[in-house]
Design a protein around this nucleic acid. Structure first.
Lengths: 189, 189
DNA sequence: CGAGCACTTGATCTATGTCAACGGTAGTGG
DNA sequence: CCACTACCGTTGACATAGATCAAGTGCTCG
């Protein structure tokens, strides 16, 4: 077994639907290098409410550096890859500031996904999740519904409508449900 | 005149409705010691969209430490007092982490204010803004509407209803509109 | 005294929620 | 291979919370 001090912690993978960490559990911070993660606030009575979202590039679990344990439950919405963070040593000031700016930007994005016309919200989320090549792997209809504060039937209707109006085009990706991988027609708004 | 190095920068005040800083303008970071601040994302065409909220205790404008200028427009919703931040010298690691945790918590709060029953959202915001003595100074109906993604007529009806059902009780505070200062009946619902 | 703004309230409309039925696919076990 | 179950997604019919439109009040400021 290699000695711990000269080898970084292993990267982690998570399958869609898998819990990455529980609320209140101990652990470290990670950088999301691939996939989409949902955070839920878990109340004392066990009720879970959607709280936030992390996508590729985001840092998750920063609060463990301060508190030692995670504030929210984290669940993988698509296949995820996580790298230990910070890479070796401790986080420097500039990196933390960058995380903070990014977190505020993400919060504003989330807020925008929960107001206005239903179809705009869903499209907003799709844009947020689309990679630079114009491809998206969507979460389940139910997860999209939780994020946008709509109902899964409404999401289903809207996604189908976007498909029919050729805003998105279904594509076939290995290992993903056929109803969840799309190419986005209009690259930018 | 005292020398600058042994005196902090002056605290700032802002009246309700006043712009604290414009999006993209240069400036520093502040700690909100009193009041409520609204952030708006300002698009290229001048369209403003509600983005986030800061209340007493929050740090605003952290991103200036990294970018030099503000990302969002900030507007005072109630009378605000701001202290320069960090107090003397530069921000340390632990303080930044605390800001980050707080920002994430605030984001989750905001998300919660934009989903579910209209009356619960308004009550949620009222609770968020209530001070430890059970008093609130509310923003205008229109600002509450922007925050909760509802319409001001709906807010008006809900606030009146909360008043009629004695969940909140109007109180008279100097220098505040009579329709905006309340005492909250149930301290922790 | 008039203008402007914030708020209230009523009447009506509609986007989305709700309920219900059904289809496809993956997994499991015979 | 089939039978069975468990999800997830789709679609229709209908209900309703909240939006929209409209009118009017009261306050503050000049």
């Amino acid at each position: 077994m290699p000695s711990p001090h000269n080898r970084p912690r292993q990267a982690r993978q998570a399958a869609p639907g898998a819990e990455i960490h529980a609320a209140g559990s101990e652990g470290k911070a990670w950088r999301v290098s691939e996939g989409v993660i949902r955070f839920d606030h878990v109340a004392a009575d066990g009720q879970a409410a959607f709280a936030s979202l992390a996508i590729a590039g985001d840092i998750i679990g920063c609060e463990t550096l301060l508190l030692g344990c995670y504030t929210f439950r984290a669940t993988a919405l698509t296949h995820c890859r996580l790298d230990p963070w910070p890479e070796g040593g401790s986080a420097d000031n500039a990196t933390l500031l960058a995380s903070l700016s990014r977190a505020q930007q993400r919060a504003a994005d989330l807020v925008a996904l929960r107001g206005g016309q239903a179809s705009d919200r869903v499209l907003g989320l799709i844009r947020l999740l689309t990679d630079p090549n114009g491809r998206v792997v969507l979460p389940t209809r139910q997860d999209i519904a939780d994020i946008t504060a709509l109902r899964f039937e409404t999401i289903s209707r809207i996604v189908k409508q976007l498909e029919r109006s050729a805003v998105i085009r279904p594509i076939r990706l290995d290992g993903v449900h056929a109803t969840r991988s799309f190419a986005l027609a209009s690259p930018a708004g």
